[in-house]
Amino acid sequence: MKLYKINSSKIKKAIICKNVNSTLVNKDIKKTYIPKAGDVAIFKIKELGKHTNMQSPNGNNIAILPGDLIMAAFGNRYATEQMEGYVPTKYHNTYHILGQGGAIGILASLHAKFELIGPTTLSLVGYVVNDNGKVINTKYLKTETITQKAIPINTNPKIILSLGTSMDSGKTTSAAFLARGLKLARKKTAYIKLTGTVYTKDKRMVRDYGANVVCDFSDFGFPSTYLCSTDELLDLYYNLLERVKPYNPDYIIVEIADGLLQRETYALIHNKEFMDNVSGAIFSSGDSMSAISGANMLTELGCNVIGVTGLFTTSPLLINEVSQRSHYAVLTGEDIMTKEIINTLDKNLNESQIENKMAVNI
């Protein structure tokens, strides 16, 4: 086995590889080794498409150009407004950038708005390995983890889910607004993004709006959570909760990517262990019908819907439709981003607790 030492100054490293310090590359196995999600490799940019930048370990976006060498990790992606892609099951002459944070795979489908642009293409140079020649995987790399224990039920801090109908329905914005409102109410808030594809823009936004601590799946080396098992997600969730616990937050906002029908989201909201831990949810939508139908779906699962919000709240007409056709509280950005949101939360969560006790007594 012959290993090559790379000049790190000539490599542009993606943020998913921030904890990778090895400069050893095995080029000989590139056609025989079958990668797993999180496996690290060196790629050469062939042709630019949708992605012309990559997020670096310090969070800044850096330009990438044909001929550049980058360090990134294999990962799957599910993004209804962008692309679908998978970790390859065999060697390919061409690979694709699936996410700006450094998720690499083989494109399966692309949103029509990007068809003329296409994906950015790469060739595989070799796999990054440790001193023993083992391919480095980013998952949990240099991160202290705890074997999953039972997730605490109905204890402080209160956990609020930020859910939505689909990608770009307003989930992160709603989470950020809620962090701002809770800060104005002098409450300590943590933000966890549990699922998605690596790119730290969302957690940075919520931090800037007032969360005391933010973290996401990529902090434990996940290029994405697409196709993870529910047990793996629960283990990740437990470790993320442990990560924010030392900050003693009053509230933890947990955002789950994409819509209620997406594979991992659907599994989590149908998982009793996960949902028993939740105090309530704010639900984001782009239109009135999906706001009501999505909130109804959560209610049928026993989830306490605190209110509906998202892009539809920018339209007075859509707000009226939801108000007239459902019992759900409509929360505009202004409603969420003021200190009075604590009154809405307290009232809703207290009423929910009373209803649960009555149901148990019955």
Results as ranks from 00 to 15, higher is better:
Leu3Met: 13
Lys5Phe: 04
Lys13Val: 12
Lys13Met: 05
Ala14Phe: 08
Leu24Met: 08
Leu24Asp: 01
Asn26His: 03
Asn26Val: 04
Ile29Arg: 05
Lys30Glu: 09
Lys31Thr: 14
Thr32Met: 06
Gly38Trp: 00
Asp39Met: 01
Ile42Glu: 00
Lys44Trp: 05
Ile45Asn: 02
Lys50Ala: 05
His51Ile: 12
Thr52Cys: 10
Gln55Phe: 05
Pro57Phe: 08
Asn60Ala: 09
Ala63Pro: 03
Pro66Phe: 09
Ile70Asp: 03
Met71Pro: 01
Asn76Gly: 06
Gln82Asp: 10
Tyr86His: 15
Tyr95Asp: 14
Leu98Arg: 01
Ile106Gly: 09
Thr121Ser: 09
Thr121Pro: 03
Val128Ser: 02
Lys134Thr: 11
Val135His: 14
Thr138Arg: 00
Lys139Trp: 08
Ile153Val: 14
Asn154Gly: 04
Asn156Ile: 12
Lys158Ser: 14
Ser162Lys: 05
Leu163Ala: 10
Ser174Lys: 03
Leu184Met: 10
Leu184Lys: 12
Leu184Tyr: 08
Gly196Cys: 07
Gly196Trp: 00
Val213Gly: 01
Cys215Ser: 12
Gly221Phe: 02
Pro223Ser: 13
Pro223Asn: 09
Ser229His: 07
Asp231Ser: 15
Leu234Ser: 09
Asp235Lys: 12
Tyr237Lys: 07
Leu240Arg: 01
Leu241Pro: 01
Glu242Val: 07
Val244Thr: 04
Tyr247Ile: 06
Pro249Thr: 04
Ile252Asn: 05
Ile253Gln: 02
Asp258Trp: 03
Gly259Cys: 03
Gly259Trp: 00
Leu260Glu: 00
Ala267Asp: 08
Asn271Ala: 11
Asn271Tyr: 11
Asn271Cys: 13
Lys272Ala: 12
Glu273Arg: 07
Glu273Ser: 09
Asp276Ala: 10
Asn277Glu: 14
Ile282His: 02
Gly286Thr: 13
Met289Arg: 10
Ser290Leu: 11
Gly294Glu: 00
Asn296Trp: 02
Ile306Tyr: 04
Val308Met: 01
Thr309His: 00
Phe312Glu: 00
Asn320Tyr: 05
Gln324Asn: 11
Tyr328Arg: 06
Thr338Pro: 06
Asn350Asp: 06
Ser352Trp: 04
Ile354Asn: 13
Lys357His: 08
Lys357Val: 07
Met358Phe: 12
